[in-house]
Simulated assay, not measured.
Amino acid sequence: MAGGDAIVNKLSTAPETVAISPDALRSAIANGLVSSEQAEGLRELERARTPAFDAEPHDDEKFRFISGFSDIFVTIGLGLFLGALGYFSSDMIGNTGMFAVIAVTSWLLAEYFTRRQRMALPSIALLLVYAGAVFSTVAEAFNPNLNFGMGLGNHGGFPIVVAGLATAAATALHYRRFRVPVTIAAGVAALVASAVGVLFMVLPDFAEQAAKPLLLACGLAVFTLAMRFDLSDPQRLTRRTDIAFWLHMLAAPLIVHPLISGLVGEGGSDVVSAWSILAIFVGLALVALVVDRRAILVSGLSYAGFAFGALVVKAGLSDSVVPLTMLVLGALVLLLSAGWHALRRTLLSLLPGALARRLPAHT
């Protein structure tokens, strides 16, 4: 105890108190210095000691996106540099060479800004540029005139399959080197593109009709993968929660678009379709509340606005459709935000105890 008291006295007389950052806690968990329960206890202790005015708002979906204005500053510089590099490379070596140069340059820049500086936003931007450049390099190499629309046919499906598989492999190497959480979602997105490419290769005449069910199946698979990461870290203290966040961001549009776009394309302006869309939106809201992931809900907002707008028109208020729709959607988002934790507590109380205990429960 004497040694512990000496340490406490030394810290108390230090000129500046150094707070333990969330990243430091995650590293401590990863290295076995503390358990997830101990880390959560430290967080609760810090929240109890911090004055209410100075405390950060509680958010179970917190993830590292930006650490300071320098992240924004560097990201702007990366955009300008890579954009100019792409312009000059395209003139000299063509589109395929341009994408290859951007992919290699993005990796080299990540060696400094990601591996050494550990800057969050530039790391995300560089990974997305790298994945997109690898995909485009391979696709363009197989078919320079490739149309990335839905009418790929036999000729266009194969480059998409190969490009998707190559991008998945490239992102796996990138993750092994840099450990950027969004990389997993980028690799999974590439695999989804490959699955769509296979569909257009095998069933070109039926592909456009089957694309939506396939995307829905892929979205559910991605959602399941995201939940595996979420359930493995219910306290949301490790890198797994960031990986799950990006997977949910990918899964949400893959699920929402196939479910709702069919109603929109098949006369979504009629009352029945509009109410159906709103019912789907309510179902998505319940899922989002249970798993505590707002990305699912955000993806359905545009469709909910379309459906409510259709109901406003049917009610004879077509002149006010836009402001009324914006007013209702804004009020809905604000109400959900204010009552999120109370609604979650109610829904979790209705679930089996074994499942509810594995879900995020910081409400």
Rank of each mutant, 00 (worst) to 15 (best):
F69D: 13
A307Y: 02
A19N: 15
L42E: 10
A100G: 03
L237S: 08
G132A: 06
V138I: 05
L214D: 07
K10L: 10
G339P: 04
S337E: 15
S21A: 11
F69H: 12
D54A: 15
D71Q: 07
M119Y: 04
G79I: 08
F73C: 09
D54L: 15
E111R: 13
I243K: 04
L324H: 02
L199P: 01
P15N: 04
Y130P: 01
F63N: 05
A133M: 00
S302M: 14
I184E: 13
I277A: 00
L317C: 05
V328P: 01
N154W: 13
V198N: 01
R294S: 02
D292G: 05
A163K: 00
T13R: 13
P57G: 06
D71K: 06
L33E: 15
A217Y: 11
A207H: 03
A189H: 02
R49Y: 11
L220C: 13
R118I: 03
D5A: 13
V182F: 10
V101F: 10
R115G: 10
F158Y: 14
G267E: 02
L263D: 05
M249Q: 09
L250P: 02
F142I: 06
K10Y: 13
T363G: 14
E266F: 12
P204V: 02
F206Q: 15
Q235G: 06
S302C: 09
L214W: 03
P352D: 13
A48C: 07
I7F: 14
A288M: 01
L329S: 02
V291H: 03
V222K: 00
L343Y: 12
P253S: 06
S273C: 09
V161L: 00
R115A: 15
Q209A: 09
L78P: 15
I66V: 14
H174D: 10
A279Y: 09
H257D: 14
W107A: 02
A252F: 01
G94A: 06
V264F: 06
R293G: 05
W275Q: 08
A39N: 07
T167S: 03
I66W: 12
E56L: 14
V192H: 04
A110D: 10
